[in-house]
Amino acid sequence: MAHNQDGNHKEQVHYVGDSRVRANRKKMYPPDYTEFPSKSEAFFPDFLLKEWMVAAVFLVGFMTLVMAEEPPLGDIADPTNTGFLPVPDWYFLFMYQLLKYKWASGPFVIVGTLILPGILFTSLILAPWLDRSKERRPSKRPVTIGLMLVSLVSCIALTWAAEAEHVTQLESSVGSPTVDKKVVDANSEGQKLYSENACIRCHGDQLQGKNGPPLLGVGNRRTAEQLHTYINEGKGGVMPAGMFQGTPQQQQILVDWLMKQKQK
């Protein structure tokens, strides 16, 4: 924009000294908003000496937050800690949550890792070319605004779901750093059912927990009814329903055995 504003291509060009800076280079002046009859003012000092108050108010709020909440620091990283529930920082949660749905994980994981985020971010970057109309008012461009609102609501909902799920998972893993790592009644019918079904894959062969939370001491934390519900209906959107393939009698034996897993 800055160059050849008048289209004088043939004009004789003069340079300053030996450098290639044009002696009569035209300055690019920003629009002065005189076309909008209003109270424009100079950036400095008029505007900035009032505007610093916005920053001051902001800073007071920010420092209040900083002083009220000490930044968290957990225990030093321990890669062998199998019970730790990983969670990304909150602004990545919506993408993290996406990967938990059946249609965006496993064989379809590319939907969650590439396709949906790709569509979202590509269309954001290309927004000026996707929405080419001259109209700027939100009410005059319903499609653009509508798409943005839909994506906004979905991102907020996904973040919300991820957070809620993390909280329930945290609750169910309370007490997981167990003192006593002994499985009660190890060579029993219940233990056999546990290892023959999918339970063992997530909760570990010694009930120590792998992808799922540990079940050591689960008898202290849960009632038999709760365990039946979790087995039948899944839990927290993470543990799928119907992982136990046995008869109802066998399920009762399994739950009885799990309820024996008590710790002092």
């Binding site: 908003y33 424009s40 003012e41 950036f43 400095f44 008029d46």
Partner: peptide, 8 residues
């Protein structure tokens, strides 16, 4: 920087 106008 200082002189550019800030519109109302």
């Amino acid at each position: 920087v200082a002189d550019h106008e800030v519109p109302e």
